[in-house]
Design a protein around this nucleic acid. Structure first.
Lengths: 248, 248
DNA sequence: GTTGCCGCTTGATCCGAATCAAGCGCGCTG
DNA sequence: CAGCGCGCTTGATTCGGATCAAGCGGCAAC
């Protein structure tokens, strides 16, 4: 592991409050590894061997069933994923693949489980992290059940714009087909719906989105903090801006 | 609170490992209350004041947005709900209402948060509980995104039959309109789809479901432990059989 | 017993979104 | 620079599911 990486990890909400000795013990068994783009890191159903920390690059969490596949979340630096499976010592529910070249730190689950049992501060951090992940997925499920495709797109755009500081124009952080999958629709449908949103205050040029009429967009999106977040920035959930969805 | 209730709560996975003194402290501020049917217990968006424990009766967790509404989970005795909101001291993401007369114990969140910080065993139980809830919602979301309505019904029926000990015939534990909402469809569609499942090995008479051809049902449902569960019965998640979905 | 309500079913129709099928444009590779 | 692959768009069509609208049947209140 590189010298600058350790302090970065240490600074994550998940690790920042634990005892130094325990952090060191945890990192003892951990190692960093570089992966090429489009590589499958985790296959759902496999036993949870490692907690993953994304140091650089981007990782997609997705799920498969029958022939179908869908994106569940995108993890960016510095973020962790599949904490819950590690803690329950249960099979991964989601697969993971790199979207681009990525550097990832792998922490053995056995160490993890041993240490949160004897470091109460770390246990509290794990609790906060898990509660945040839980609420993120609940939000995602609410969006899927309560909103139509157009509404999901509109509110995602509104939310994304807010994340960037209420800018009127921004560039999509991921491929459209991935965004479509995350939002629960086909690429074709996303494409059409995006164009149809011109009537609701959004224009598009390639990957660049421009909000021409925020009021009209909001009228359609009806943004709701109980779906779109965020949680009032509490003690948790990291500094990294979640770009597509972060429920790892 | 009644004399027999305290030991029952104490026996829940969430509370069974904590120190007796801390359990008593927690119960000090708690109180039980009886609610009539169809009463709104929690309105989403409100601050999380109490962790709820269902002693008897049934509680529905649901979400609202715009004019619409959908069922997210059903909690039966002895089960807890909205742990995550309590822990994050954040607004509830879901509303809750009684489906029938219910008796519920309310535990102040301030006590809860104070105690898991000083009782490591309790913290571990909270971790296990949250991880379980997280995985339950991930499963639910996977089902919504990867399966069609008919497939969701088929796999719910298969799962339900398995829960009852692989019986061929059982009675629906909830109203059909609620089941429809939980499965992400309209009552009309559930009704039609159920009838159409006759071709796939399921017949229905009122609330009674009979599986006439398990093989054919499974061919449609393609049951998957990564969606339908369960987690290999680990240290968590209680003894109570979740009937519709339990992600509280 | 009668009445009215509510949940369920059934039918007809409409709409949103998936699917199927080309074509386009950009970037990579040879 | 040419060729090709891949992601995106666009169009035509199909299909699943929602919506609208009645009618049925059980159950509770009066």
């Amino acid at each position: 592991m590189r010298p600058h990486e350790l302090p970065e990890i240490r600074h994550l909400p998940l690790f920042r409050d634990m005892l130094q000795a325990n952090f060191e013990a945890l990192m003892q068994g951990a190692y960093a590894q570089a992966f090429p783009a489009a590589l499958e890191l985790i296959r759902e159903g496999d036993p949870a061997d490692f907690l993953h920390v994304v140091i650089s690059g981007t990782v997609e969490l997705y799920a498969r069933w029958g022939g179908r596949e869908c994106t569940m979340a995108v993890i960016r630096p510095l973020g962790t994923f599949i904490l819950a499976a590690c803690i329950k010592d249960a099979p991964y529910l989601m697969s993971a693949r790199t979207l681009e070249r990525a550097r990832i730190v792998l922490i053995p689950t056995s160490d993890l489980r041993a240490i949160f049992r004897r470091d109460p501060e770390f246990a509290v951090s794990v609790i906060q992290e898990l509660a945040g992940c839980y609420r993120a997925v609940v939000r995602h499920a609410k969006g899927l059940k309560l909103r139509t495709s157009r509404e999901r797109i509109a509110s995602w755009l509104a939310h994304r714009s807010a994340l960037c500081g209420n800018v009127a124009s921004f560039v999509l952080p991921v491929e459209k087909r991935l965004l479509a999958s995350y939002l629960g629709m086909t690429p074709e449908n996303l494409s059409r719906a995006l164009k149809s949103l011109e009537a609701d205050g959004v224009t598009m040029d390639g990957m660049r989105i421009t909000i021409t009429d925020r009021a009209r967009l909001h009228a359609l999106a009806k943004p709701d903090r109980l779906i779109d977040g965020p949680d009032p920035a509490g003690a948790s959930s990291g500094s990294h801006p979640p770009s597509v969805g972060n429920e790892g």
